[in-house]
């Protein structure tokens, strides 16, 4: 088991983490390239930049958005705060960064980490529940929308068990292995699924806006595609 654990914490982690970093960088580069491309071809280059900036900031700090679907919004907000704070500021993780790369930053108390971890697991289940039981959301959902919240909950649940070995019915090393490998899997999945919104979020408003600035002559392209060339609209 120790050899498997060393593999998961060693090469497998390095691969997943580098894939995550480079994959997110790739998203940034591709987005910039595509935005420039669409901007060059756009028929209408008047962009409401102030409005876009405001909308982007409002989505990044989504407190004002809570009024639409309050409970769903609140669950989502708590979920996001928990899954961002705990992995980065857990004392054990900070110690790993210090040991591996000599980087160090303050950690949160273990009791706070415990509470946030449990909240992350609970909110993940709630998010999934709201997706399953709300007909409107369900019809908009893809497979990854159902699969990702429980997957995100796995490293948190196993992490909690590792912090409280007295309550852990499973073998410690096995729990550790599942913890590391599930996190590795999430790292790899991040650039490939909607998890990439962690880096693409700031550009979403701009991309959505640009998508409506059709290229010159795109109307006739649509006409050609529909086989209704030359017909009056």
């Amino acid at each position: 088991m120790d050899a498997w654990l060393d593999w998961a914490r060693g090469p497998a982690f390095v691969f997943s983490f580098v894939f995550l970093l480079l994959g997110l960088l790739r998203h940034v580069a591709l987005t910039a390239w595509e935005v420039a491309h669409v901007w060059r071809r756009a028929g209408d280059r008047k962009l409401p930049l102030g409005k876009l900036l405001r909308a982007t900031l409002l989505w990044l700090v989504p407190f004002t958005r809570l009024r639409h679907r309050f409970w769903f919004g609140l669950t989502s907000l708590v979920f996001h705060v928990c899954i961002l704070v705990v992995p980065v500021f857990l004392a054990g993780h900070v110690a790993l960064w210090a040991r591996g790369l000599g980087l160090s930053w303050p950690a949160i108390p273990n009791a706070v980490a415990d509470a946030l971890t449990l909240l992350a697991v609970v909110t993940a289940v709630l998010l999934l529940g709201q997706r399953v039981f709300s007909r409107a959301t369900r019809s908009l959902s893809r497979v990854q929308d159902f699969a990702l919240p429980p997957l995100v909950a796995v490293p948190f649940a196993t992490g909690f068990l590792m912090m409280h070995p007295g309550w852990n019915p499973f073998d410690f090393q096995a729990t550790f292995f599942v913890h590391v490998m599930s996190a590795n899997l999430l790292f790899v999945l991040t650039p490939l699924t909607k998890l990439s919104h962690m880096i693409l979020m700031p550009s979403t408003q701009l991309v959505a806006e640009l998508a409506w600035h059709w290229p010159v002559d795109s109307g006739s392209a649509v006409g050609r595609a529909l086989g209704k060339e030359g017909e009056p609209v």
């Binding site: 090469p11 691969f15 580098v18 894939f19």
Partner: peptide
């Protein structure tokens, strides 16, 4: 990116 990550891991 996949190739680069594999190379770093190995």
């Amino acid at each position: 990116v996949l190739g680069a990550a594999l190379a770093v891991a190995l």
